[in-house]
Amino acid sequence: MDASPPSRRTQIISAALQRFRTHAVSGTTLRDLAQAAGMPIGNLYYYFKSRDDLLLAVLEECERELDVLLDRWAPLAPLDWLTAYFDWLLLDPEASTTLGCPFGTLAGELRALGHPAAERGAQLVRRYRTAVVRQTAAAGIQTDVFMAVQGVYTVSRILADPALFEQSIREIRDGTLPRQPQATL
């Protein structure tokens, strides 16, 4: 049986999240959001009372995205968890350099804007960081993988260099995770 199509509200949130990640919150008007969602601007107010209500819904979607990732990796042993984490980071280097960290970029912008939702964004990043730190500690790894990855996101985004992102993440991964023994023929 096919899944039902996403609700109009869900489509708006998805369009807003994509727009905020590509053009930033400060670079996005309600008209931009309506256009991205394929509707007249007045229709946005049917689903969201204000831009801030929509922004909170976008943060909730980011929280849901993080929950999905963490739930997917929860049954894994620490080294397998970290391997899955690095694999996830390497899924789309191009997006990483245009969008930045899927959670940190939005949270950082909210803080810079002095937005009332900044603390909620910070809580999201704390949860993300705590999960990575917990797994690296459980694996007996001393490297602060989370901070290293965030630095790579930042510099690669500034330089708009997906190859730098991919190379740097691979270097962090290879320098952090133990090497698998090579099979002999």
Rank of each mutant, 00 (worst) to 15 (best):
T176A: 11
V133C: 04
V149Q: 07
A139D: 10
A122W: 03
Q142L: 08
D53S: 14
R126H: 14
L177A: 12
D80L: 01
M1E: 10
Y45M: 05
T176C: 13
E94Y: 02
A112R: 15
Q18D: 13
P6W: 03
E94Q: 13
I158E: 10
L76D: 11
P75T: 00
L70S: 08
A24H: 14
I141K: 04
P116M: 03
A57I: 02
T28Y: 04
Q18P: 00
N43Q: 14
L55K: 02
K49T: 12
L79H: 15
V68E: 15
A183K: 12
S156P: 01
R8M: 08
A16Q: 07
L113Y: 08
L90N: 12
L82E: 01
Y153E: 05
A34L: 08
R170C: 09
G100E: 03
A16G: 08
E60H: 15
F103C: 07
G175Q: 09
D71A: 15
Q123Y: 06
P102K: 02
T136Q: 13
T154F: 13
W81R: 05
A163E: 15
L106C: 07
F146T: 10
L69Y: 08
F48L: 07
D174L: 03
F146D: 09
A24Q: 11
L159D: 11
I169W: 04
R31D: 13
Q150E: 15
A117K: 08
W88D: 14
